[in-house]
């Protein structure tokens, strides 16, 4: 069953003539992992903000069409209501920590305090979350002392603790170093295995290739195509036309095919590349 459903959805920010999202039709199944790619300014961040209701409740503008998330119409529900169903993670690890907690544990508990969850339950969930993100030894430290990757994990956990069924991540690793990036993706992988519906907007095709079920391409405020991850991410022409650089492995296989060293389909992941190189070396 579709847990997120866009129906002819368009959005125009106040003061803008052209819509930032135009006629989006998309449904996401429960437990699915959807990757969202596209060039800068294609409307990806706006797309992510719709599902929590930041659009239209936080930013003023005009809405057309319909968006239903977990049975709730976004236009008719409050952000607070939606926040127990949708968790939204932003780019910057620093500014999305609310500063309401003087320690990691308190930062995690903040959302629950707002929802009026009893203390016992809070303690239980905080303990679980700290363990999930592997920051047990940091739980009494100030979240502002942590590294970018750790902060981003705290941010993810502080949203997850409200037990949403959908997690939307808007370029969660754009400001992180390689180590932080791999830490965050490890966590996302863990969550995907748990069956949470994940919608991930990212430029990191290499990571996306490994665990996305489907991938959507946005370009010029429109949804260009949605399909199986492998199909989209190895369609080199489609990617390039929409300003996306294919994964390094795809590029490598493309090059080898061009030079006649390899005959087969394009690679996508590290695993594919290994197989290909074994074949090439045998020759």
């Amino acid at each position: 069953m579709a847990i997120v459903k866009f129906k002819d959805f368009s959005w125009t920010y106040q003061g803008y003539k052209k819509p930032t999202l135009r006629n989006i039709n998309l449904s996401v199944k429960e437990g699915e992992f959807l990757g969202v790619i596209g060039r800068v300014g294609s409307g990806r961040s706006t797309f992510c903000m719709t599902m929590l209701g930041l659009i239209p409740h936080f930013f003023p503008g005009r809405i057309k069409g319909e968006l239903v998330v977990d049975g709730l119409s976004v236009e008719e529900s409050s952000i607070a209501e939606l926040s127990t169903r949708v968790g939204l993670i932003f780019q910057s690890p620093d500014t999305q920590l609310t500063g309401a907690g003087t320690t990691v544990e308190e930062e995690l508990a903040f959302g629950l305090e707002n929802l009026g969850v009893p203390q016992k339950e809070m303690n239980k969930r905080v303990k679980k979350m700290v363990k999930l993100i592997g920051l047990e030894s940091f739980r009494n430290r100030s979240p502002f002392e942590l590294s970018g990757g750790q902060q981003q994990k705290v941010a993810i956990a502080s949203v997850l603790i409200m037990q949403p069924r959908i997690l939307v991540l808007d370029e969660p690793t754009a400001q992180l170093d390689p180590l932080g990036t791999s830490q965050v993706f490890d966590l996302i992988k863990k969550l995907a295995k748990k069956g949470i519906t994940i919608i991930l907007n990212t430029q990191k095709i290499n990571y996306l290739a490994e665990f996305a079920d489907r991938v959507a391409i946005l370009n010029k405020n429109k949804l260009v195509k949605v399909d199986k991850a492998r199909k989209i991410l190895t369609d080199v022409k489609l990617l390039r036309r929409n300003g996306i650089i294919p994964s390094v492995y795809t590029q490598l296989s493309e090059q080898l095919i061009k030079e006649g060293l390899y005959k087969g389909s394009l690679c996508l992941t590290l695993g594919d590349a290994k197989k290909m190189i074994k074949k090439v070396v045998k020759k």
């Binding site: 999305q96 609310t98 903040f110 959302g111």
Partner: peptide, 13 residues
């Protein structure tokens, strides 16, 4: 950005 983060934590519930 922080205000958005607050919204995401049901601050106004």
């Amino acid at each position: 950005e922080r205000a958005m983060a607050l919204e995401a934590r049901a601050f106004r519930a």
